[in-house]
Design a protein around this nucleic acid. Structure first.
Length: 414
RNA sequence: GGACAGAUGGGUGAGCGGCUGAAACCACAUCCCUGCUAAGGAUGCGUCGGGGUAACCUGACCGAGGGUUCAAAUCCCUCUCUGUCCGCCA
């Protein structure tokens, strides 16, 4: 959620910033109008409440002293009706404000480049040279070994399209990758946590998936519960409604989880292979920091994910997302794209974002700083999407004879 | 799923329909003492918001939402969650 006060006091800078993200300015204008209306409506209500409070206290005193209270009682009853009207006005405005404030995305950081979509993202750097093949590398589903590793048809039989089954080395590689990534992150100071895969509405509001993106989530029938689209949701919300101490920050956490996404907007995209599934495994990084720490921690997370790819021998590049491609909650995002020789292109495998205080304001995560409560910054990043890492290994480590070799660092995990 | 009990500030935990935003203790912060010493003493200390340069004034909040009342943490209703016992089950 954006800072309503900032919208009231410095509308132009908020509007300017959100233009980068292609936000409809009329929404913002409306939000400001309602917030100001609400302010004046409260100015009507509160003196009435103050009057009611003080006179009700008097009532008690009079009654004890045996004085006549009938005229006072009449006044109070009359005032009570006024309060009811004023309260209704305030309540309705609060509801409107809430509805609007929760669907407006975060402001991009000033460092975020202008741009419409993914074509305007800015490449920051490339790490590792793609391997030169003496044969034409195949896409992962065409590699001979894959016939024995991934069963797409039976995944569909069990659930529906965009589900698959891993077998043999692929199943073991998946498990090895998860363990390797968690251990790697632990050496970088991230504390491992294991969290629920099903969460409630408040939790999803906290990180920004709700109310706007309910269509992207799998909802449990008959319950107000949803399958998590990423471990970012439960891990960040661990501290919802809490006031932390400055000393315990930054909190650096890592979690493995399965992730569930409806992929509502991507019909027909990546239908072949394992790139885009309804269920996938991911190891996530989540950090909670003071505003002063967040930029440095962002860099730590980014290098953690990038070094992980490097340690696996996977060529990749860093992309700074432009305003138009930035997610709802993010102020700044750097994507890591891994080289897929079979597809002959880079594909997203990790995304590291700083949301500044956007999620913290929604989730009410604060810390005590010299007696004052301040909002924390929250950051999240994948490290890495496990299924895509598996694909990347298959395509980058494929041999001419159709087998796949295993990166050295993973051998002890297999 | 059935029966009962409970939900109060960072924690434990009092709370009679008005004098309670809330005792006490712990934790924490600042200061004092250093002949009660792994101690003693003083003061401060909930959250969010409005007004004011400031001292300060003021509204809401005691799981959530309704209701009764001039007045509700306190009474009534609904819901959620937690605990205990029973049932079921990894």
């Amino acid at each position: 959620m954006l800072d309503i006060k900032l919208i009231q006091n410095d509308f132009e800078s908020v509007a300017q910033s959100l233009r980068k993200k292609k936000v409809d300015e009329s929404l913002l204008e409306e939000l400001r109008a309602i917030s100001l209306e609400l302010k004046s409506a409260r100015l009507v209500l509160e003196p009435l409440q103050a009057e009611q409070n003080s006179k009700s206290k008097l009532f008690g005193v009079y009654a004890k002293e045996g004085k006549d209270v009938s005229s006072l009682k009449a006044e109070l009853s009359e005032n009570k009706a006024k309060i009811a009207d004023a309260t209704e006005i305030v309540r309705a405005l609060e509801e409107k404000l809430e509805a609007l404030a929760t669907i407006i995305p975060n402001m991009p950081s000033p460092l975020v480049p202008e741009g419409e979509d993914e074509n305007d993202n800015v490449e920051l750097k490339r790490v590792l040279e793609p391997r030169v093949f003496s044969f034409t590398p195949k896409e992962h589903w065409d590699i001979d070994s894959a016939q024995n590793w991934i069963d797409f048809e039976r995944g569909v039989k069990l659930a529906k399209s965009r589900f698959s089954v891993l077998k043999n080395e692929a199943a073991r590689l998946e498990r090895a990758l998860i363990n390797y990534m968690l251990d790697f992150n632990r050496t970088r100071g991230f504390v491992e946590v294991a969290v629920p895969y099903i969460v409630n509405r408040e939790t999803l509001m906290g990180t920004g998936q709700l109310p706007k993106f309910e269509d992207d989530l799998f909802k449990i029938d008959g319950e107000e519960l949803f399958l998590i689209p990423t471990a970012e949701v439960p891990v960040t919300n661990l501290f919802r409604d809490e006031i932390l101490t400055k000393e315990e920050l930054p909190l650096k956490m890592t979690a493995y989880s399965a992730c569930f996404r409806k992929e509502a907007g991507s019909a027909g995209k990546d239908t072949r292979g394992m790139i885009r599934q309804h269920q996938f495994d991911k190891v996530e990084l989540v950090c909670i920091t003071t505003p002063e720490q967040s930029e440095a921690v962002f860099e730590e997370m980014l290098s953690c994910a990038s070094d992980l790819l490097t340690s696996l021998g996977l060529p990749h590049r860093h992309l700074m997302l432009c305003g138009g491609d930035l997610g709802f909650s993010a102020a700044k995002t750097v994507d890591l794209e891994v080289w897929l020789p079979g597809q002959n292109r880079y594909r997203e495998i990790s995304s590291v974002s700083n949301t500044f205080d956007f999620q913290a304001r929604r989730a009410k995560i604060r810390f005590k700083d010299e007696g004052k409560n301040r909002l924390v910054h929250t950051l999240n990043g994948s490290s890495l999407a496990v299924g895509r890492t598996l694909i990347a290994i298959m395509e980058n480590y494929q041999m001419e004879d159709g087998t796949v070799s295993i990166p050295d660092v993973l051998k002890k995990y297999m």
